[in-house]
Every structure is written in C-alpha cells, then in structure tokens.
Design a protein around this nucleic acid. Structure first.
Lengths: 137, 137
DNA sequence: CTGTATCCTTAGGGATACTG
DNA sequence: CAGTATCCCTAAGGATACAG
C-alpha cells in the first residue's frame, strides 16, 4: 500500500484497465460465464481474464458457483461489494458521455438522458436486475 | 482504442494508478506546483509525474501557466473537463469508505458523514473552491 | 525549480498450446 | 469449458543524474 488514502486504496485494487470492464459485463450485459467475458469487445486474453476473475473473487467482488449437472461450468455473480461499484461506474459513464471521443451518439444519449436524469432510479433498477438474476440461479 | 464503450474510453485515458491521484491533489489538497505533487504520500517519481502532467494537459484536464516574475515556476490548474471528474472521485471515495481496509476511521467518517449525505453540496463547494482559486491566480 | 534523459527492473499483457 | 502454462514483448515505473 502506497498510502491510506481512500482513492489510492480503490486504485490499487481495481485501478487497472480490465477489472471494471468485467464488472461492467456482469452489471450491464448480464454476462455470467467465462466464455461470455472472453468474447467481449475489448478482446481480453484468457490468462488476463483468469487472473482478474481470481482477484475479483479474492477481493470479494464476485462469487463463483458450479452449475448443477455441468461439472466444469462455473457461473459468476456479483457480491454486494461488487454491486456497490455501480454508482461509480455510472459516474464514469456520465463523464465519458460528456467528454469522450469516438463514442456513438446513441450511447451518449442513453447515458445522458436515461441514466443521468435519474441516477437513483437507474441504479435501483440495475441492482434489482442483479439480485433477481442471482435468485434465479 | 479497444472499443467504443464509454467505460473503456475513460479507463484508457485515466485508468492508471497515478492520474487520478494528481487530480485528487488538485481538487482536495489545492496543490498547484510540481514539487507539491512530488511530495504527496504515494511518492510518485519525477519521470512519472512529468509524464502524467503532460498527458493531463494533452487530454485537456489541466492547464499550465507560467508564474509572473518566476520564470521557471509553473502553476497547474484544472479545466472544466478535469473538474468534472470530481463526482466520480467522490463515488470512489464513498465506495472505499464503505469497503476499504486500513483506511483511518476519521477519513471514513468524513466521507460517509460530511460528503455522502449531501453529495451535491459537497461537489458544489469543491468546484467553487477550484474556480475561486483559479481567479486568484 | 521544473522538468528530461538514462538505465534498469518489474509488471502487464498478447498469443498460443495444453490440461482436467 | 474453465482455466494453466509458457513464451515473449512492451509498458510502467523506480532511481538517479543532468539540463535550462
């Protein structure tokens, strides 16, 4: 640890270029399986994905469960600690929607109109989706 | 660019372990000069600092101005684009105050009581400080 | 005082083959 | 299918010396 600053703490545990993208896949795209993460736009490679998933589990962001009757299949889901990253991911998205370049207009519009205008509802809906998805499992 | 995702965009331009700490120094500790950034807790080294300050300027987060009658002295200040990172830094701090380990209680209390309870006011006050500091320059 | 430049080490990461 | 293991390369970063 470089310091006891809260911002520094966060940067040290999820301040890399991949971790939050995996969280995003879980939150916004309802991804649950290894192959699904592997096939996301950014083309994460398998060794990095395995490493980050292991870290996410170690740090309590993600739970791993075996799928019944599919011996090798593993399902990933967010813990409350992971779900509580949603507000900050949304803030990042809002900033990018305002200043980002080469981001499609429809994505910017969605964030600035549907999300930013009522963050509390947007966050609530996302959390409900995640919890109900988890119950279904 | 790995994708046109807003989150990915943000991670690519300030998703490293140092950039947001410099922004933090500007926002919360009112640092303005190279030596001040250099002496922060996390012990950034001079080549990294120079590199990140150059990137921050290139990406429009920070302005560099020479101090009158101090030929070599440079003063750094945030642009609006940089100031607009405040809400997301606050969200990170709130998350860390809830889940972070080895963070002093008084820091957690400050964030959870003084900041989280009224984010809008906290952000407004920080922005006013930054703008008035800039005018004073 | 504000950087640059250099040297060197380590961490991050892509590609791909392999394992249970 | 979910990882591991290996190879190799590049980026990140620390230490320190130097320049304007």
């Amino acid at each position: 640890m470089r310091s006891d600053c809260p911002l520094n703490y966060a940067l040290e545990i999820f301040g890399d270029k991949w971790t939050l993208l995996i969280i995003r896949d879980l939150v916004f795209f309802n991804k649950r399986y290894y192959q699904e993460f592997l096939s996301s736009e950014e083309k994460i490679s398998t060794n990095i994905l395995a490493d980050r998933l292991a870290n996410l589990e170690k740090n309590g962001f993600v739970k791993r469960e075996k799928v019944a009757y599919h011996k090798q299949k593993i399902i990933y889901s967010l813990t409350e600690k992971g779900i509580d990253l949603v507000p900050l991911i949304i803030e990042i998205a809002i900033w990018s929607a305002k200043y980002g370049e080469d981001i499609p207009e429809y994505k910017k519009d969605f964030i600035l109109h549907d999300v930013k205008k009522d963050k509390i509802t947007a966050i609530k809906n996302l959390k409900e989706n995640l919890y109900s998805a988890h119950i279904k499992i």
